[in-house]
Amino acid sequence: MKLTFYLGALQALHSRPVPHSRLVLYSRLVFHPRQPLLARPFVTEAEKVASARRELLEKIYEPFAKLDKNSPEYNELATSGRVWEDYWQPGDSDKYGYTRVQQEVASTLLKIDTLKNAMSVPASVVAKQLVNSYAQQSAAIEGNRLNQSESMVIDEQLRSEVFSKTPLGSMSADDIRNLDLPDPSVVLPQADKLQLIELRNHLVASHWISETSPRAQCSSGLDESEVRALSALTMRDLDPHEKNRYPTWCGDPVMLGGYRTNPAGIKSNPLAVFPYPLEVDACMRRFFQWRQRVSEEKELHPVIIACQTVVYFLHIHPFPDGNGRVSRMIMHDYLLRHGYIPIVFTPFSRPEYLRMMMNAQDGRPGEFVSRVVTIQLEWMQTFQLQDMARNSHHE
C-alpha cells in the first residue's frame, strides 16, 4: 500500500531522548511491507506504541492520502494547518472540558473576584513582589535545580546592573531580548552556568511582563511577535557556540524566535501529536485569533481562559525548546492584564505538572484548573490579610 502523506512520509514512531533536551525529535519513517505485529510471537512495548502512533498519524493525516504531494492542493493544505487543527480542535472549550470545569469551580471564582475587587493593593503591585518566586518555580518545573536563595542573588545582580539603569516598562519585547545582560556565574561561581543563564533569562522576562502587562488592562495578551521575542530571550546564551540560535540539542539550526523545523514529540506521552513544521505558522496564527475571540466573548472566566491558553499553546509546541516556560509567561501576562495574580506552582514536581498537562490535552483539565484556581484564591486571601493588618496598624 502506498502512503503519500504530508512531508513525503509520516515521522518516526518511538521516543529517542536527545541529551539535555526536553523535546524529543522524530526521524523520518519509510514504510515497507511488514509482518503484522499481532502475527509475531514477541511484540515489545515500544513496538506497540509505534504501531499505535502510526495508526493515529494515518487517521489524522488521511486527507493527504488522495492528493499528489507535488500538487498545489497538497501544499496549500499542508501549510494551512487545518488537518491537524480540525482533528484536535484545541480551541473547543466544550470538547476539552473547560466549560464544564468552570461551572464546577464557579463559587471559588466568585470568591476570587470578590477579593480582587476589594484589594487595596492591585495585582500589578503584588506581581512585582512575586517575580523572583514565579521565575524560579517556572524554571524548576523544567528541571532547573537553582533554589529561591540563588534566584534572589541573580535578581539582585539584575536590579543593580540592569534594571536600575534601564526603564523596562518603556521597552518592547524586541528590546529586552537584546539587552546586555550580566554573567550570573560571577555572583554564583559554584552553580551550573547554563542553569544560571536559564533562570536569569526567565527573571528578565518576568520583570518585563510585570511592568508592561498591567498597562494593557483587559486586552487579549501578548501578540505573536512578543511571544517570539520572549522565546528568544528565554533561550539566549544557552549554546556557547551559536549565540543567535536555539541550542544545537534542539535539532536543525533555528534562529532565536523562529518556529521549529523538525517534527516534535514528548517522551512522557509518545502518542501526543503536534503540528508538523509547515503547519506551525498557521496554527499559531489561529491560536492568537482564538484567544482574542474568547476574550471578547467573555463566556469563559479570565482564569479559565489563562488555563486553556497554556494547554493550547503547548499542544502546538511551536518552538524548538522552551515552550513550557513561554506558555507560563503567556499565562502570567494574561492574568495580570485582567487583574489577577501570577500563579506560583509551589511545591510542585515536574512529573506532576506534565501529568496535568497531558490530562488537559486529553480533555481532562479538572486537576490543572483546580490547582490554578486554588492557588489564585490562596494568594488573594493572603494579600487580603496583609491589607487588614496594614489598616489595623494605621488605626
Rank of each mutant, 00 (worst) to 15 (best):
M1L: 14
L3V: 03
Y6F: 09
Y6Q: 07
G8F: 03
Q11P: 03
L13W: 02
P19C: 10
L29S: 04
V30K: 04
F31R: 12
F42S: 13
E45I: 00
A50F: 04
P63H: 13
K66S: 14
K69G: 05
K69E: 10
P72W: 08
L77P: 02
R82E: 07
Q89H: 07
P90Q: 07
Y96K: 02
Q102L: 09
L110E: 14
L110Q: 12
I112Y: 06
I112M: 08
D113Y: 07
S124Y: 06
V131C: 06
V131W: 01
N132R: 01
S133T: 00
Q136T: 12
E142T: 05
R145N: 15
L146P: 02
E156L: 10
Q157C: 08
S160C: 00
E161I: 00
S164Q: 13
S164A: 15
S170I: 08
S172Y: 07
D175V: 11
R177G: 02
N178M: 09
P184F: 07
Q195D: 15
N201Q: 09
Q217H: 14
S225K: 12
R228S: 14
A229N: 01
L233M: 13
L238N: 03
D239V: 10
R245N: 11
R260I: 08
P270T: 13
E279K: 01
F287A: 01
F287L: 09
S295W: 00
A306Q: 02
A306G: 06
A306F: 02
Q308D: 05
P318L: 03
V326N: 06
M331N: 04
H332V: 10
H332N: 15
L336Q: 09
Y340L: 14
I341C: 02
T346F: 10
F348W: 14
F348Q: 12
R355Q: 00
A360G: 01
P365Q: 04
W379K: 09
Q384P: 06
Q386S: 10
M388I: 10
N391I: 13
